[in-house]
Computed example of a mutant assay.
Amino acid sequence: MTASISRRRSHGPAHNAFGVLGAVVLALGLATACGGGVSGEAPANPIATEQVPSYYPSAYGDLIAAAKKEGGTLTIYSNTDQENWQPIFRDFQQKYPWVTKIAANNLDSDEVFQRVLSEQATGNSPADLLVSNAAQAWADFAARPGTLLEYASPEKDKLPEVGSLLPNVYAMSMDPLSIAYNTSLLPEKPTGLASLAAILAKDPAKYQSKITTRDVGGAFGFTVSHAFTEARPGSWTSLQSILPLARPETSSGTQLEKITSGEYVAGFFVSAAPAYPAVEKSGGLLQISFLDDGTVVLPRGIGIAAKAPHAATAKLFVDFVLSQEGQRAVAEGGLTSYRDGVATGDGLHTYQELVASVGEANVIVADYTKVPDDQVKTFVEKWNGLLGR
């Protein structure tokens, strides 16, 4: 089905040196199938090599020519897993075969910006692109002068309103947050926060310290938790019974590992992007569900660094991931595409598929508006005050 994306305002929204972070270099001819949550092999994504849509400006060939002179290299600072990137890089390199090396690290969502700011202060940053879904951190970064390159993508007018998150920051994907649970340890499937609270209330002592949520001290955790409670203020009733049993973690990957191992029985506000492949690899031990009382969707922002060493190539990449071809690759990688017309099925995940699952009224799209510091402090104190010790 086709669903329009309406922005539901939330009023707020690892770690070695880059040289040893395991840069990924993907050559042409990688197998079409990837991890990223694909069931079986997704159908091939038809790529028009060095051909762009008719609505691109006539001078776009000059941008392609400039990119060819940059040496076929692209460096991305992101919080995105390599298996999510794989089909995107594969298809981008098929479109522009002379791009032979794409290096992408995997930092914490906030660290993406901390690293670039530190390097930009010395005037020597290798970053071409920044990709993160830390809305608060993006808002802080974009507000600083001289951090982002001004770029109006020719795809901008083809996207829904939410595709433009901030000046010069676009949405690469629209990733939903889920409840993840260990099927051998939780007797019932939680369908939402209220459902989870009801399950835990049957034997709260059994589940003490067995639930996990995201640390609201980080930009990601704050954004998704704040967006949910702003849109669903009545949810504090459920949170008052769940949070005393919960412990915070700083990444969805850690949460998923610990739920699968049994250290936790369930976690909420777990990103679906790393969850899709984890579910497939678990042999049925790990499952996720989207919240029927409000599924937060967090856009994954992409922007070009102000002093990008390969600025022309970076522009081509932004245009590609926003295009029909690129959004198809985004979906294949386990991220959630949002542009109309991207096929579903075969493990391809789309915003329209989510709407069909939970209903548009139950989708909460977090925006990239900066929340004042005093409001952040009040929220974090309230949330952390409920957590179990």
Rank of each mutant, 00 (worst) to 15 (best):
E119P: 05
T73S: 07
A171K: 01
E83I: 13
V131M: 14
K156H: 13
N79T: 10
P126F: 06
W98N: 04
E83V: 14
T147A: 03
S109F: 11
M174F: 14
T75P: 01
T100W: 09
Y181W: 11
L117F: 10
D108M: 08
K68W: 05
N182D: 14
T147K: 09
R90H: 08
I88C: 01
P97D: 02
A66F: 00
Y170H: 04
E161N: 14
K158Q: 14
L186Y: 03
G146N: 06
L63N: 01
A134T: 04
L159S: 05
L129Y: 10
Q93D: 09
G146L: 06
L117G: 08
N79H: 13
P126C: 05
S153V: 08
E83C: 10
Y181F: 15
I179Q: 06
K68T: 06
S173D: 09
P126D: 07
L165F: 11
P160A: 11
M174W: 01
S118C: 07
S132K: 01
L165E: 05
T100S: 13
Q114M: 08
I88P: 00
Q120E: 15
A142D: 02
T80Q: 10
S184I: 03
R115D: 09
D157S: 14
D91Y: 11
T122K: 13
Q114C: 02
K156D: 04
K69A: 14
T100R: 15
P87S: 08
A134E: 07
L165A: 14
P145W: 12
L186K: 05
G192R: 05
T73G: 04
D157A: 15
P145H: 09
W98G: 05
S195E: 11
L166T: 04
S118I: 07
L165G: 07
N105D: 15
L74A: 06
L165P: 05
A127D: 06
E119G: 04
P167E: 10
A104R: 02
S195I: 12
D110M: 05
L117P: 03
M174H: 07
Q82N: 09
S132M: 07
L74S: 06
W138I: 00
I179V: 15
T183R: 11
L149E: 11
T75C: 06
A104C: 09
